[in-house]
């Protein structure tokens, strides 16, 4: 018996849980991400020794680290489906919008969990003081959502190409750049004990919304022939 209108939220949730379950069983991306982050942080800390870095450099390091972690692990949502061949079943039975938002949600959660693990290490290894925790958390969340949103749609773009992973970084960076720069500047202000303007936070939020809407509009062209 065919159903006419799929329950979108239900489908989004199902897709996110499925990705979560597969990831939990294989730990394919999560371990790579975490090890990458740990090694990068440790090597930076080892190289600078006891010296303390200026606030803007520290802020830049944090977001560069998160960016490259994302590049290491977030393309999995579409690339692995394509490589293992499961994408066809998903194309037949799953609607485009549900797939996009389900996988977007999964990437957001993965990046947020990774950030929660990295921030304590970041504070310890690089000896930083966070003066405004609530705003810092807001900046982290908005920045992570931005990285996840850009990564998810770009992952869909590269899924059917050759040379996927190298291409993934090249394609994501220009799209992510506005969010990247504003996250760095907001974090730098926080580390210098200055509260970022509300306009900075608003900019990041608007970017996320616009990117998600654009992804939604454009995704059907990628998903369906």
């Amino acid at each position: 018996m065919p159903t006419i209108r799929l329950n979108l939220l239900n489908c989004i949730w199902a897709i996110m849980m499925k990705d979560g379950l597969c990831e939990f069983r294989t730990r394919y991306a999560v371990s790579a991400l975490f090890m990458f982050a740990l090694i990068s942080l440790a090597s930076i800390s080892m190289s600078i020794g006891a010296a303390s870095l200026p606030a803007d450099l520290t802020a830049a390091l944090l977001w560069v680290l998160l960016f490259f972690c994302a590049m290491a692990g977030l393309s999995r949502v579409f690339v692995q489906e394509e490589e293992s061949g499961t994408i066809i079943a998903l194309q037949i039975y799953g609607s485009g919008q549900a797939v996009l938002f389900g996988k977007l949600l999964f990437n957001i959660l993965m990046l947020l969990s990774l950030t929660m693990l990295i921030i304590p290490l970041f504070i310890i290894f690089l000896n930083v003081d966070i003066y405004h925790w609530p705003i810092f958390i807001v900046v982290l969340i908005l920045g992570d959502i931005g990285i996840a949103a850009a990564s998810t749609i770009t992952a869909a773009v590269v899924a059917k190409t050759q040379g996927k992973n190298a291409l993934f970084t090249v394609l994501t960076f220009p799209i992510l750049l506005p969010q990247f720069l504003s996250s760095i500047s907001a974090t730098a202000k926080i580390l210098m004990n200055v509260k970022p303007d509300i306009s900075d936070i608003l900019f990041m939020a608007v970017y996320n919304v616009v990117l998600m809407i654009a992804s939604s509009i454009v995704f059907d062209y990628l998903w369906y022939d």
Binding site: T3, L21, A89
Partner: peptide
């Protein structure tokens, strides 16, 4: 519609039951 094809590959990291549950849920069944 339902499609059976050699090109269809089901999720190897889920159980058979979980595969069926997942896809039927996508169809709100």
């Amino acid at each position: 519609l339902g499609l059976i094809s050699p090109e269809i590959i089901l999720y190897a990291d889920l159980t058979g039951r979980e595969n069926i549950l997942f896809f039927t849920r996508l169809r709100k069944i």
